[in-house]
Amino acid sequence: MSEDPDTVEAAEKIRLFRLWRDTGNERYLLAAQQLRGDALTELLAKKSKGRPSESGDFRLLHDEMHEAVQGGLKPAQAAGEVVDAAAGGGTRDAKARRLALKYRIQKPFIEHVAAVVTQECEAAAKVARAAEEFREKIEEERDESEKRRS
C-alpha cells in the first residue's frame, strides 16, 4: 500500500521545519518553503519554543528583590517574597526560580551600569567644577586688569 504523496510531502515539510527550528539553519527553512502547502509553512514558521524573552515583569520586581537581598535574604528567598506579584504562568516555585535566576544573572550587570553612571557623573561634576574655577579665575584676572587700567 502506497502513502498519499501529499501526506509524504507534509511529513517531509514538518521534518525540515523541525530541523530548522532546532538548528537555526536557514537551508532547512528554504527547503521546507519550496514544498507545497503555504498555510502549513506559515503556521510552523510562526511557532517558537519557550517563553517570550520579555514575557515577565522582572524589571518591576527587581527593586523589591534587591531591597530584600540588601536586608539579608538570599535571591531565592527574595523571589519567594515577591512571587505573588509576578505575572505569567507556572507554579509559584517555577516563578520564584525564574525570578531568582534572572536576578543572579542581571544583578552584576545592573551594578556595573550603576558604577559606570556614577563614575560618569563624578567626572562631569569635576569638569563642571573646573569650568567654574576657570570662569572665576578669568573674572578675577579681568577685574585685576581693569583695576590696573584705572
Results as ranks from 00 to 15, higher is better:
residue 50 G to E: 06
residue 127 V to T: 08
residue 142 R to E: 00
residue 147 K to H: 08
residue 33 Q to H: 07
residue 50 G to F: 04
residue 31 A to L: 13
residue 50 G to D: 04
residue 110 I to R: 08
residue 96 A to C: 00
residue 36 R to H: 13
residue 88 G to Y: 13
residue 13 K to W: 11
residue 39 A to R: 05
residue 29 L to K: 11
residue 51 R to V: 06
residue 119 Q to S: 11
residue 78 A to E: 04
residue 149 R to V: 02
residue 10 A to K: 05
residue 31 A to K: 03
residue 134 F to Q: 00
residue 51 R to S: 08
residue 33 Q to R: 07
residue 114 A to K: 04
residue 70 Q to N: 13
residue 91 T to G: 12
residue 113 V to T: 13
residue 113 V to I: 09
residue 25 N to V: 03
residue 104 R to W: 06
residue 40 L to K: 05
residue 149 R to E: 09
residue 119 Q to A: 15
residue 72 G to T: 03
residue 142 R to C: 00
residue 35 L to F: 10
residue 60 L to D: 11
residue 53 S to G: 07
residue 10 A to M: 00
residue 44 L to N: 06
residue 57 D to L: 07
residue 58 F to Y: 15
residue 42 E to Q: 15
residue 93 D to Y: 14
residue 119 Q to F: 14
residue 72 G to V: 01
residue 33 Q to Y: 12
residue 68 A to L: 13
residue 144 E to P: 01
residue 13 K to E: 02
residue 51 R to G: 04
residue 114 A to P: 10
residue 139 E to C: 01
residue 132 E to I: 03
residue 71 G to R: 03
residue 72 G to W: 08
residue 144 E to N: 03
residue 97 R to Y: 13
residue 39 A to S: 07
residue 101 L to I: 02
residue 85 A to L: 09
residue 48 S to W: 15
residue 23 T to H: 14
residue 7 T to G: 11
residue 82 V to Y: 03
residue 42 E to A: 13
residue 6 D to A: 15
residue 20 W to N: 01
residue 126 K to P: 10
residue 68 A to G: 05
residue 21 R to S: 10
residue 128 A to R: 10
residue 71 G to Y: 13
residue 55 S to H: 04
residue 9 E to G: 07
residue 125 A to E: 15
residue 121 C to G: 14
residue 105 I to N: 14
residue 146 E to Q: 01
residue 101 L to Q: 08
residue 120 E to G: 08
residue 22 D to G: 14
residue 100 A to F: 02
residue 109 F to L: 12
residue 49 K to Q: 09
residue 57 D to P: 10
residue 108 P to M: 01
residue 62 H to L: 02
residue 126 K to E: 12
residue 76 A to F: 15
residue 150 S to G: 15
residue 12 E to L: 11
residue 50 G to Y: 07
residue 116 V to Q: 13
residue 108 P to V: 01
residue 138 I to R: 01
residue 103 Y to F: 05
residue 35 L to A: 09
residue 16 L to G: 02
residue 24 G to E: 04
residue 16 L to M: 00
residue 108 P to H: 09
residue 48 S to V: 03
residue 145 S to H: 03
residue 58 F to T: 02
residue 58 F to D: 07
residue 126 K to W: 15
residue 51 R to Y: 09
residue 150 S to L: 08
residue 34 Q to W: 08
residue 99 L to N: 01
residue 149 R to N: 11
residue 89 G to Q: 15
residue 69 V to S: 05
residue 25 N to L: 12
residue 68 A to I: 01
